[in-house]
Structure formats: C-alpha cells, structure tokens
Nucleic acid binder design. Structure first.
Lengths: 164, 164
DNA sequence: GGGGGTATGTTATAAAATAACAATAGGGGG
DNA sequence: CCCCCTATTGTTATTTTATAACATACCCCC
C-alpha cells in the first residue's frame, strides 16, 4: 500500500504503527541517553505524533487543557524544548510551530517540505545538500553551525486540486 | 580594501555607497515596474539599509517614532510587506526579523548566513543549491514553490573571538 | 529522611502580528 | 476643474507566540 517514496510521509502509511514506533524509539533513546521522558513530555510528543501537521504551542496547550490537565504556556514550551533539543521534535521556523521528528533514530540534518494546502509536513534527510550548504558557507568564510531548510509547496495529494 | 569574497557583506566595504546604491536601485526598479516607493516605504527601506543586521518590525517602529512620525505596527508591517513582496527586503524566518535585500537588481533565490555573535546577516545566492533542493523535492513527489535556507554560525570576524 | 538537582505549576508580561475600519492622497475621465 | 476610484496611511483593539520570575513538587542518592 505504501508508495515507494522513501522518507516521505505524504504517502499512505500505517500511521498507527508510525506513531507507536516513534514513541518506542523515543523511550528507548531516553533510556539509553539517561534522559527523562516524563509523562508531560511523552504526552506532548504523542500529541505531535497524532498527525503529520505542525502544531503551534498553543494548539498543544489547548489539547492538554481539553484533557483536564491544567496547563500554562511555559509547561508546553519546556516540553517542546526538551523534545527539540534531544531530537524528538523539530521547530518549523516558517510556521512558528512544531512537528514530531520522523527519524529520531538516526542523527540527521532535516529538510522540511510543507504543503501549503493540507498543511502536512514531511521531513527528508538533507544529506549531501547539507554538506553543500556548509561548503558554500565555508567558501564565504562563514563557519556554519545549523542550517534550516524549509520548502513550501504542494504535496503529491494536493497537486491538481484547484488549491483547496 | 574590500576582500575578494563575492556577495559577502561580512567583509569591510563602503557601506555608505552600499546603501546609496541599494536605494537608487529600488527607486529605479519601482519606476520601471510602476510601483510606488512612497516616503514611508522608502524610509523603512533606508532604516533596514543602515546596517546588515536584521531588524524586528518593532525595532523599525521605534525608529520611526523616534523620528517623530506617529506610527503603529500595521504601518510598519505594510511597508515591510511591500518591500518583501517586491524583492527589496527579506524576512528572516528564524529571527522574526527583516533585512534589506543585498541584490535586489537580479531575481535570485537567497540563502542567509546569520552570525550568532555580531548578528550580521549576509545574503548569498542560492544558485545551484536551490535547484538541487527543488530536484530533491520533485523526486519526493513534492511540488516546491519557495525554499527557505538560513544558516546560523559565525562570521569571519567573530570566529576566534571567544564567542563574544 | 534530608539535600540538591530537575521538573512542573502559576502569575504576569513581553514580543510579534493582524483584524477592522476611518481618513486621506493621487490619478485618470468626464 | 472636479469627481470618483483605488491605493495608501492612520488608528484602535485584539490575537498569537514566547518568556521572565518565582513557587512547589518530585526523585535519586547518600
């Protein structure tokens, strides 16, 4: 069923398994690195994993509140800080929003494809492009640390729709 | 005096001339394209051109107010919208800030080098990297429209400073 | 079972952006 | 010249995103 486009969440896939794998991976990684995936942090990650859309911090906050946890912005931002700094989630700069990491298991530089129509976000490895960006920066005398690559456009499913 | 690193504003350069050229270019481009570079828009562009740092909308607002123009956020945002959509300025997504365009004369895809120490922002042409990003997106079935590439790091002058 | 570090809870506020509507300015056609 | 149309600027209020500062609770280790 899943199309043969690697690393692309736009295609049909077993999302339940996708979520479960990610959560298991995160738990394992935390155990290995002696990080504490507390209930709060785990819950925020689960919420991010529910879809491949990016969520604003206040969207997550609303979800937590709907679940009865009294919650305030700093709580969400702190959980997100944890998830982002340990590679379990990413911040999308163009959207001021966050998405679960699709490949937390390997250390990678991500590149994001953001569908302007359905708002899904796919993460692809930057690979050689990242090296090329570093090389270009170096040639300009700049010591690059962290590159952000975010591409807006239309995902496979939304192309041809009259831009709904 | 200016080093031989092309398209790089980090090196010493005649900034007065840099500014004047950019303003002249913008005026000419507006005349050619029948766009109105009104006093307000021109002033905002001048403010952006005063340095190669990115300015937040509210920094610009404060400048305008200091000059006696009564001004409110929408005025600044509208001027910035004009400048950005016509290629005279860019928005830096990572910084929620704006910088004058260094190469408004040619239509290009920009890449930004952001110094974490002195906060100067250099704009380099994305060139082939942009095409590579498009190609990668296409291979994943994604129809790319606008790529954002922003690299944080250290500019030539700030490397070796113990990170001040 | 007390102490120190980490995490969460709470209040308040800062920073960035936009909605909605009013007033005004410029520019072509009568 | 004047009127109308449109683009721009002005103003008020509000929304959205993010953080500062400090209190409380939790947990592991000794």
């Amino acid at each position: 069923m899943a199309q043969e486009i690697p690393n692309n969440i736009f295609c049909q896939h077993d999302h339940r398994g996708c979520r479960a794998t990610a959560m298991r991976g995160a738990r394992a990684a935390c155990r290995a690195a002696n990080l504490r995936l507390t209930p709060m942090r785990a819950r925020v990650l689960e919420i991010l994993l529910e879809s491949h859309k990016a969520l604003g911090a206040y969207d997550i906050l609303a979800r937590l509140r709907a679940e009865g946890r009294s919650s305030q912005p700093p709580i969400v931002y702190r959980a997100l800080d944890f998830l982002v700094s340990n590679g379990f989630a990413h911040r999308l700069e163009r959207l001021n929003a966050f998405a679960a990491c699709a490949h937390a298991e390997d250390r990678h530089q991500p590149m994001f494809l953001i569908c302007e129509s359905c708002h899904q976000v796919a993460e692809a490895p930057l690979d050689r492009l990242g090296q090329d960006i570093f090389a270009r920066a170096t040639k300009l005398g700049f010591q690059a640390r962290s590159p952000v690559v975010e591409v807006s456009g239309l995902c496979p499913a939304c192309q041809g729709d009259g831009e709904q």
